[in-house]
Simulated assay, not measured.
Amino acid sequence: MAPVPKISAASLAEHREATRERILDAWGELLRRHGYEKITLAQVGAEAGIARTALYNYFADKEALLIAHTTRESATFVEMIRRELGGADSAAERLRRYIRLHLTDFAARPPIPGRDLMQVLAPEKYRELLSHTEMFEAPLREIIDAGAADGEFDTDDPAMTTALVLGCLFAERTPLSTGKHDLDKAVEHVTAFLFRALGCR
Score class of each variant (00 low, 15 high):
T53R: 11
T53L: 07
A54M: 07
A54W: 01
A54G: 03
L55T: 00
Y56W: 09
Y56G: 07
Y58S: 03
F59D: 02
F59S: 01
K62D: 01
K62W: 07
K62V: 03
A64Q: 14
A64C: 03
A64D: 12
I67H: 11
I67T: 00
I67R: 07
A68E: 12
H69R: 13
R72K: 09
T76K: 14
T76I: 07
T76H: 11
T76Q: 15
F77I: 01
V78E: 08
V78K: 05
E79W: 01
I81N: 10
R83G: 05
R83A: 15
E84K: 14
E84G: 04
L85I: 08
G86V: 00
G86K: 04
G87A: 15
A88I: 02
D89A: 15
A91D: 06
A92D: 11
E93H: 14
R94W: 12
L95Y: 06
R96V: 00
R96Q: 14
R97M: 09
R97V: 09
Y98T: 03
Y98C: 12
I99Y: 10
I99N: 08
L103R: 00
L103P: 05
L103K: 05
T104I: 00
T104M: 04
T104K: 08
F106A: 00
A107Q: 04
A107R: 00
R109I: 02
R109E: 08
P110H: 10
P110L: 02
P111Y: 08
P111T: 08
I112S: 07
I112L: 01
P113R: 11
P113G: 05
G114M: 04
R115F: 03
L117F: 11
M118C: 10
M118Y: 13
Q119R: 15
V120C: 13
L121I: 02
A122V: 11
P123M: 10
P123W: 08
K125F: 12
R127Q: 15
E128M: 13
L130Q: 13
L130N: 14
H132R: 09
H132F: 13
M135G: 02
E137L: 06
E137S: 15
A138M: 10
L140G: 02
R141M: 13
R141A: 15
R141D: 06
I143L: 08
I143R: 10
D145Y: 01
A146F: 03
A149I: 03
D150P: 01
D150Q: 15
D150A: 15
D150N: 14
G151V: 06
G151N: 14
E152M: 14
E152L: 13
T155I: 10
T155S: 15
D156T: 13
M160G: 13
A163M: 11
V165G: 06
L166F: 06
G167S: 07
G167T: 03
C168I: 11
L169I: 03
L169F: 05
F170T: 06
F170D: 07
E172M: 12
E172G: 05
R173W: 02
L176R: 01
S177H: 04
T178L: 06
T178R: 08
G179L: 06
G179S: 05
G179C: 07
H181N: 15
L183I: 04
D184V: 09
K185Y: 09
K185W: 04
A186K: 04
A186F: 05
V187M: 06
V187S: 07
H189Q: 14
H189T: 14
A192C: 03
F193Q: 14
F193C: 09
L194M: 09
F195N: 04
R196L: 14
A197P: 05
A197C: 08
G199I: 11
C200N: 12
